[in-house]
Design a protein around this nucleic acid. Structure first.
Length: 414
DNA sequence: TCTGGGGTCCTAGGACCC
DNA sequence: TCTGGGGTCCTAGGACCC
């Protein structure tokens, strides 16, 4: 059996951990640049505040409702997530960390109800993280069970689907896009074929639908019938590409500012890449401008002469590429850089003619990472990223990095 | 005025190889 | 006028997820 443990309104719940004053009050968390609402707790939902909507459109409603507003604080959420996962580990035979706020666990026990409640209670007691638990014989059904645990109050946060009668009862009552793996496009096409609810899908011909859609849908159908087709992915595969892109706080028009931004994002992306011992020889830069209600995208792929993890090399290549796709006179809202086709040193293809990254460069990067990890992310950075540049995304409601920065540690006075 | 950011997998079709 | 058969690799685009 699989359990899916999913944190309730994760970002909003993180904000409440070290700030109990907001517990029981409406809370909303905004995306980068304070653009959209990306998380809101039950109290905020009760006020009728919709999710994934531009903040400015609902700002009045949010403020009138007395909501506590937070900018997103990924340093905090990432650290809380790691703690939640660590606490859950002893409760599973094996565990797959599926996203920042959820994990699949494989279970071996007699009483799934009791086990689900044990996990839920433990997480609340240890870290004040409210969760719901869904348990079923396949990951897709566990997802569904979790949804039910969240929606149906009398389940008290834990739902076990251990017989076909139970999951079929639920499947008959849900729309197709409530099923994991089915989005709006596939839902629409299935509707056109006369399939509207989960049970109808579960009873359709998987092989026939595979030919019309893909193997993914076939597996979904089999999983809905209690057959496990998606195994746990235990050790996360290293990423094949790493992208870093952000919107600016205002519309940027100057080339040098775009180059500062792409250097900064390159540094972040390289840091992530080095963390997984990755190297790249291929990068991609991207510019998005906005004028007269129209978006323009320009992008460029760059091949480096050899594999590297050196921030300086990649930032420079990125800045050069930006200069090539830059068109003066446009107002830019966003830019980004992607490191593609990541390799590890182990599989480095040695090329007689390609320049190899020097020992000195590797050591410099490793030292830089160690210092930044010890003393904070931007202790050492490239000079060409600018010093507190104005275009940097705004985060006007950011909470402290309670658990990851010395200066921000909460103080208890008695 | 103001609309996030970061990933994965699958398939079809073209290029190329023997 | 006639024009094989089988395979791999790569890329773009579509769809999905959180």
């Amino acid at each position: 059996m699989f359990a899916l443990v999913d944190c309730n309104t994760f970002y909003a719940s993180c904000e409440a951990i070290f700030n109990p004053a907001v517990r029981g009050k409406p809370v909303v968390v905004l995306s980068n640049n304070d653009g959209c609402i990306i998380s809101r707790n039950a109290e905020a939902k009760a006020l009728g505040i919709p999710g994934m909507l531009p903040f400015f459109q609902v700002r009045k409603q949010v403020e009138d409702g007395g909501c506590h507003i937070f900018s997103s604080n990924y340093e905090l959420y990432g650290d809380i997530s790691a703690r939640v996962m660590r606490l859950m580990e002893p409760y599973a035979v094996e565990m797959e960390v599926y996203s920042i706020d959820e994990a699949f666990l494989s279970l071996h026990c007699d009483d799934f109800h009791a086990h689900g409640h044990a996990i839920k209670d433990m997480l609340w007691q240890n870290i004040r993280m409210p969760v719901c638990v869904g348990i079923a014989p396949s990951k897709t059904l566990a997802k569904l069970a979790n949804r039910a645990a969240k929606k149906i109050p009398r389940l008290n946060g834990v739902c076990v689907l251990d017989t076909p009668e139970k999951w079929e009862w639920l499947l008959a009552r849900i729309s197709l896009d409530d099923i994991w793996g089915i989005g709006s496009r596939i839902k629409k096409r299935l509707n056109e074929m006369g399939i509207y609810n989960g049970l109808q899908l579960a009873r359709s011909d998987a092989k026939w639908l595979r030919r019309r859609f893909s193997v993914v849908l076939e597996k979904t159908i089999r999983e809905l019938n209690g057959e496990s087709c998606l195994p746990l992915e235990l050790s996360p595969e290293p990423k094949k590409e790493i992208i870093c892109s952000r919107s600016f706080s205002y519309k940027v028009t100057e080339l040098h500012e775009l180059q500062q931004a792409v250097s900064l994002y390159a540094a972040r992306a390289c840091e992530k890449m080095r963390k997984q011992c990755g190297l790249t020889a291929m990068l991609w830069v991207y510019l998005e401008s906005f004028q007269d209600q129209v978006h323009f995208h320009r992008q460029k792929l760059v091949k480096l002469p050899g594999l590297t993890n050196d921030t300086r090399v990649i930032a420079e290549a990125g800045a050069d590429a930006i200069a090539e796709i830059f068109k003066p006179g446009l107002r830019y809202k966003k830019c980004g850089i992607g490191l593609l086709d990541l390799r590890t040193r182990q599989f480095e293809q040695l090329d007689f003619y390609a320049p190899q990254q020097s020992q000195q460069s590797r050591q410099l990067m490793s030292t830089m990472d160690k210092i930044n990890e010890r003393f904070g992310r931007y202790t050492i950075q490239l000079a060409n990223t600018g010093i507190q540049p104005k275009w940097l995304m705004s985060r006007n409601f950011k909470s402290p990095a309670y658990t990851t920065r010395w200066a921000d540690i909460p103080v208890v006075r008695c």
